[in-house]
Design a protein around this nucleic acid. Structure first.
Lengths: 232, 232
DNA sequence: TAGATTGTTAATCGATTAACAATC
DNA sequence: TAGATTGTTAATCGATTAACAATC
């Protein structure tokens, strides 16, 4: 029973991973959690795990884990389970951790500065190459090793240093206008913290909206509706 | 055809809103968006809206809107539509905007300071009554009008000023230990930014996990898998 | 009244779970 | 080989959409 290190054997074998279109949004939303738990298992030196073991660790069903992983081809081995290192590296590949993506941050306010200093990007293989702001008091300063440039120079900069994504931490009033400029610069991904719903799916760009206000309201709702007498 | 201002007529009429248990998580997740769009309509002075009109505004189906709103009773009127002010106030009620919830923030780092200064809480009727940190260099300072107190005094403070929720913007290493202390203080809601999955549903507390790293990874995935040759 | 639009039921679609044959 | 555990199909569950009768 030698530990598995070889290629996947599932039915997606001869397709490049990037071109499997049969992956549901629900599965994609769960991939980052697999990434995190596998990373942790690897650090703990665990070399092998079964769907059952992983399921009790993550609090989901073993069935779901097997179903999810199989969307991308057979990552495991019957009778053995999954090789942690191998599975981790396949998931990294899926998530583009090794793709060398580059990001810029638009808006050097509180949130922009908090984000640029977080180790999040580095851990996930995304490089922040610049920040931009319109405030003269901020332009020219450095935060977390990243220079804040004048928003007016956005187009110039992108010509020389193309970025894959932009993090929007600017007031929602200018969100639409700025996203147009970013698309024109060739940026294809927006991580949107502005609180304005952006949907550019039709324009060959992807948007991930993070709406903190909505998240807070969901907590509010549940606080108000879980207080003891819920089932009465 | 007089504009509707009276009570709802649906079958949930004689139940207090807080005790309708038939509301699916999917509906709850959408309520904050209704809140935002209705708020905006109100500011624009619009007094009446149909599910069809709202649907094209929000980019969802009219059917879903009617279905969603009906979970909580009949908020509209056949042949007329919905009264914007009335609907807005009912949704505020559902979301606890008038409930006078109080929050504390644990961790006065970049993210904690960014959050305390955001107008988000005030808009949603949540009052931040204190921040806590263990760093002596921060304790005693004020951010956004809120005093940073010593984490060691958490229990003392909560005895005198009970809070409904805590915002966790501290390193994930201490997330579990700190949430135990918070539960012991009587706090029933956690807004968790630590990146560690917390699940305290079993212990009569609610958790809203905001995992920014996961969100970034989903964007990564879609960037890598939408690049032109997707359907090949 | 006629027109409009909800409330609500039925049909469809998608996602999760269960079960088990394949196979290491 | 026997035991374990995946890959995969079928069954269930939940969420969305369509349709239309009720009614303002």
């Amino acid at each position: 029973m030698d530990p598995k290190k070889n290629k996947p054997l599932g039915n997606a074998e001869n397709l490049p991973l990037e071109e499997n279109p049969n992956v549901s949004p629900a599965v994609i939303r769960r991939l980052p959690r697999y990434f995190r738990y596998l990373r942790q298992l690897m650090r703990q030196g665990k070399s092998r795990i079964s769907s059952g073991e992983l399921s009790s660790l993550m609090g989901v069903t073993a069935s779901q884990i097997r179903q999810d992983l199989n969307c991308f081809g057979g990552f495991g081995q019957q009778g053995y389970g999954y090789n942690v290192n191998y599975l981790y590296s396949r998931i990294c590949e899926l998530l583009g951790v090794e793709a060398g993506l580059r990001a810029i941050i638009i808006g050097a306010g509180d949130l922009g500065r908090a984000i640029v200093r977080a180790p999040m990007f580095e851990k996930r293989g995304v490089e922040i190459i610049s920040m931009f702001d319109i405030d003269p008091a901020l332009i020219g300063k450095e935060v977390g090793g990243v220079l804040i440039r004048d928003m007016a120079r956005l187009e110039d900069f992108c010509k020389d240093f193309p970025a894959d994504m932009a993090v929007l931490t600017l007031p929602k009033e200018s969100a639409s206008e700025v996203s147009e400029r970013l698309l024109a610069c060739g940026i294809r991904g927006l991580w949107n913290f502005t609180g304005k719903d952006l949907s550019l799916e039709s324009r060959d760009a992807v948007v991930e909206n993070v709406h903190l206000g909505d998240s807070l309201m969901i907590l509010n709702y549940r606080l108000c509706h879980t207080a003891d007498g819920d089932e009465a």
